[in-house]
Design a protein around this nucleic acid. Structure first.
Length: 925
DNA sequence: GGGTCCT
DNA sequence: AGGACCCAACGCTTT
DNA sequence: AAAGCG
């Protein structure tokens, strides 16, 4: 019976959001409650620093105290290669105690301060309670009154926050590690209940919820552990955004508790072709809403959709009404019904509800519940208390339902209408009232959950009416003559109102015929009162051709939904075409599927067609298709004709073809490297966003789990090396390819270190060239070599290949060292200052910080999201002269250049820099 | 752009 | 097949 | 705590 599998749901809900939640600064900072326990202001002595990257990046703001010995250093502003700082950093890193337990004070001053205590995972074990006890003691002794913000402390770190409410103190442990979520709940429970009784778990949970931090569901479960089964379920009622398996389980339990039955699926109707006759059929409106089984007790209610999801959270007003109903009836109830939105007391269409279906936030839900409350129209009763009515005939169930709801129906829970016998009349009403259709039910049939029985028939009402053709759109690519007809009708004032466009339903001959009809009617201006915006260029015609269109319904914005061309009506004058408020053509079951796939003319895919040729063909044929990349790999691509570079008309297809063309050179640059995507789904003029995680990628596209911050939490990243992967990233809207400096398998090492030379707004490119030359001079003096390329934007990139196994920290350090040297030697022209306002507009920013692990720089041969589709192009050092124009290297020119000059990047990066020269640079501890 | 969850 | 919605980074610095 | 930066 219940065929739903839970495995699917599990998969869907598997990745918990908790980690992400804690990462989000907003979520975390919301927990701050500055009143009452705000630390005293004023400067405090700093006793420790914990910033995960502080040591490696060699940036300290604080003074340090290690093992009681004060080591007071401050990071100088600006160039920070102070040897003292470096030495201290190493001391911290090497110090065995330093990663154990710290205690310290945040520096005071403008932003306040406080005392902190942190654990790493090793000391976080609550086995002996030492950590928690120590914290509690520290707090009690007044040593600890504030907890360090945890954004920087990831993975292994537990974070403890304390606050004071009245005379009581609260402890909240936030664990960033999902594996410990359970323990977190336990600890919170222990702490909160052991300190100063009087405040219960759920009060605290409630307070926490207010802060928008998602609480582990366990907490809620705890408080009701001793209550009845039903009540427990009620307490576990999923959070507004909880879905999937949890909802199913909760609903299942409620169902069982209420009915003792394990089954949880509605009965379905099959499609009916004719209106059945006879007194053993009853007819009900087919409501346009959300089908749910409603499980109600006096304490709780669930609204289970066909997919087994609980929508109780989205429709609190119905839940309340159901609970009241169950209370009055003094029994648990299971109803079958449809959630509909009532407008003026009449069921509105599905769209009115759609916005509520997925809402997660409480205020949004409350707003809807208040402004546009929904109603459950109940049309069947499956269980009442201990009685299962499933086996009873519809008549008996209906009688019971009417007894139950007759006097208790409310605005929120209503009795569905039913008419036994006269189906034709009901269908007529359906047309008149614009229902979606009619459900016919055998009056003697039992309720068979999960089955699409012939006892229930769905009688659809079809909309059909004439419209005037006011124009047509251009066909896309291989389609001939006409894309779609632009349809309208006359309103009361004689204005032609646009109603939508219909492209389906034509045969090829039909299109040609229509084109012939329309050709002599061409006019230059739109005949519509308000010219519609069309996807394709429009051609206007005098409104005289009348066509018959069938469609599903009118959308809310008064357009045709799924309109299909049926035929030309020569018998009707155009001027008489009005909107037929309730379309009433006789139901004809003779609608043949006429929507035709666009026919590809000319080229067909053949085995020898290159990837570039395939892409060109697909783009010409409409933009969507499948690229075959090898005997076993293919990739779905869409919208290849979408313009990504509006000024130059360069399309997504162009970008893909470029990468396919230069694949032999660009793929090695990316091989084995995690990729960071910056996606421009609407071209370079549109909004962009970054993406790291890449799950659910198509076959042939490589991903690898990447533990980006070494905390044991891996996330799948796209990994370069295959053409499929690059093309897929472009398919997603990525334009450049941005590889890590590390390869999977050795993410803590870097293969190269890179300096990004970025001219300030007033710095001419020639100055970038100067800075690059100076750097080249430094490198020569140090016995180092590097590869040079344009950034593809306004600057240059200089990359130093490194010996295998070079630690990322060292790579960063090396870049910092070189950057600092040139910035020190040429302070007017070069700066390493990251803050924009601290940089002079005429200086070149020498950015070495992109060497921090996980950061990226556009790879060699990457197209950049810049006008002209410029390409990050490898250069010979000899090309570095004042006449160099980085804008000359574009998606259009680089392939030819590659032919001419060869792969300069591969040549320059092949040999790593000598270890000797690098060692000579290492700071002396 | 893609997945989900409704129709 | 269509529509609405949601999601798609991060580490570091400065104020 | 919030904003700036790449």
């Amino acid at each position: 019976m219940a065929k739903r599998t839970t495995t699917k749901k599990t998969a869907r809900t598997a990745p918990p959001a908790a980690l992400g939640e804690y990462r989000r600064k907003r979520d975390f900072t919301k927990t701050a409650e500055p009143s009452g326990d705000a630390p005293a202001r004023g400067s405090r002595r700093l006793r420790f620093v914990v910033q995960k990257h502080a040591a490696s990046a060699l940036h300290f703001d604080f003074r340090l105290e290690i093992d009681g010995v004060m080591k007071s250093w401050a990071v100088p502003k600006g160039p920070s290669l102070d040897p003292k700082v470096k030495r201290l950093a190493m001391e911290v890193e090497d110090h065995p105690v330093s990663y154990n337990t710290f205690e310290g004070t945040i520096p005071g001053g403008q932003y306040g301060g406080g005392t902190v205590m942190l654990w790493d995972r090793g000391t976080y074990e609550p086995a002996d309670g030492s950590s928690v006890d120590a914290l509690r003691e520290g707090y009690a002794a007044g040593k600890l009154d504030f907890v360090l913000q945890g954004e920087r402390l990831r993975g292994a770190w537990a974070l403890v926050r304390t606050r004071k409410v009245g005379s009581r103190q609260q402890w909240l442990l936030i664990k960033r590690d999902d594996a410990h979520a359970d323990r977190e709940a336990d600890i919170v429970a222990d702490e909160t209940t052991s300190i100063d009784s009087g405040r219960t778990m759920d009060e605290i949970a409630g307070g926490a919820r207010k802060r928008a931090v998602k609480e582990p569901a366990k907490k809620a479960a705890k408080k009701t552990a001793k209550k009845t089964a039903v009540k427990k379920v009620a307490a576990e009622e999923p959070k507004p955004n909880a879905r999937g398996v949890r909802a199913v389980r909760a609903a299942d339990r409620l169902w069982k508790a209420a009915t003792g039955m394990p089954v949880l699926e509605p009965m379905y109707a099959s499609v009916g072709t004719a209106v059945p006759e006879g007194d053993d059929w009853t007819f009900e409106p087919k409501y346009d809403g959300v089908r749910v089984l409603a499980l109600a007790t006096a304490d709780a209610a669930q609204l289970v959709t066909r997919n087994g999801n609980d929508k109780a959270a989205q429709f609190p007003e119905i839940v309340d009404a159901l609970r009241a109903l169950a209370r009055q009836a003094r029994r648990a109830l299971v109803l079958d019904g449809e959630i509909v939105a009532l407008v003026d007391g009449r069921p509105a269409r599905f769209q009115a509800l759609q916005g509520r279906m997925h809402l997660g936030d409480a205020t949004g839900i409350a707003g809807h519940a208040a402004d546009a409350p929904a109603t459950l129209v109940a049309f069947d009763l499956l269980h009442a208390g201990d009685d299962s009515l499933l086996d009873q005939p519809w008549t008996a169930r209906r009688a019971r339902l009417e007894r139950l709801l007759g006097k208790r129906a409310t605005e929120r829970v209503q009795l569905g209408e039913t008419v036994t016998g006269d189906g034709a009349a009901m269908v007529a009403r359906a047309r008149a009232q614009g229902w979606e259709g009619v459900i016919a039910k055998r009056t003697d049939a039992p309720y068979t959950p999960g089955q699409r029985a012939r006892h229930w028939l769905k009688l659809k009402v079809e909309h059909r009416q004439e419209f005037v053709v006011g124009g047509y759109t251009e066909p896309r690519n291989s389609r001939e003559h006409i894309g779609a007809l632009l349809l309208g009708y006359y309103d009361g004032d004689g204005r032609l109102v646009y109603a939508g466009h219909a492209g389906g339903g034509f045969t090829r001959e039909g299109l040609r015929d229509m084109a012939r009809r329309l050709a002599p009617l061409a006019r230059r201006t739109s005949p519509f009162a308000e010219p519609p915006r069309t996807n394709e260029p429009a051609h206007w015609v005098r409104p005289s051709v009348v066509v018959e269109i069938k469609f599903i319904e009118w959308t809310e914005d008064q357009r045709l939904r799924q309109p299909i061309f049926v035929g030309v009506r020569d018998d009707k004058p155009a001027a008489s075409v009005r909107r037929e408020a309730e379309s009433v053509q006789e139901v004809e079951a003779t609608v043949k599927k006429t929507a035709k796939k666009t026919v590809v003319k000319g080229a067909t895919s053949n085995a020898k067609e290159s990837v570039v040729e395939q892409l060109a063909r697909i783009e010409a044929e409409g933009g969507d298709g499948v690229v075959r990349l090898g005997p076993r790999t293919s990739l779905d691509v869409t919208n290849l004709d979408k313009v990504y570079f509006p000024d130059d008309g360069i399309t997504k297809g162009d970008v893909m073809r470029y990468y396919a063309t230069v694949a032999p050179h660009v793929l090695p640059v990316l091989a084995d490297r995690p990729l960071v995507l910056r996606r421009f789904p609407n071209g370079i003029g549109g909004k962009a966003f970054y993406q790291h995680r890449a799950d659910n990628v198509p076959a042939g596209v490589r991903t690898e789990p990447v533990d980006a911050d070494g905390d044991g939490q891996s996330v799948p990243f796209l990994v370069g090396g295959d053409l499929a992967t690059v093309l897929y990233s472009v398919q997603l809207g990525a334009i450049s390819v941005d590889p890590w400096h590390s390869r999977v398998g050795a993410l803590d090492t870097a293969d190269y270190t890179i300096l990004d030379l970025d001219p300030g707004p007033k710095a001419p490119f020639a100055r970038v060239v100067d800075v690059a030359r100076w750097i080249k001079g430094e490198l020569d003096a140090l016995g180092l070599h590097a590869a040079l390329k344009t950034s593809g934007s306004t600057g240059l990139h200089i990359a130093l290949p490194l010996p295998a196994g070079t630690k990322a920290d060292s790579a960063l350090l090396l870049a910092e060292l070189i950057a600092t040297r040139v910035a020190t030697a040429h302070p007017k022209e070069a700066t390493i200052e990251r803050s924009l306002r601290a940089r002079s507009a005429g200086a070149v920013y020498v950015d070495y910080l992109q060497n921090i692990p996980g950061k990226t720089v556009a790879g060699a041969y990457a197209v950049r999201a810049r006008p002209r589709a410029t390409v990050s192009t490898p250069l010979a050092w000899e090309e570095l002269d004042d006449a160099l124009d980085p804008a000359a290297f574009t998606l259009r020119t680089v392939p030819a250049r590659l032919e001419q000059v060869g792969d300069l990047w591969r040549a320059a990066m092949r040999k790593p820099n000598p270890m000797r020269a690098l060692r000579a640079l290492a700071p002396t501890p």
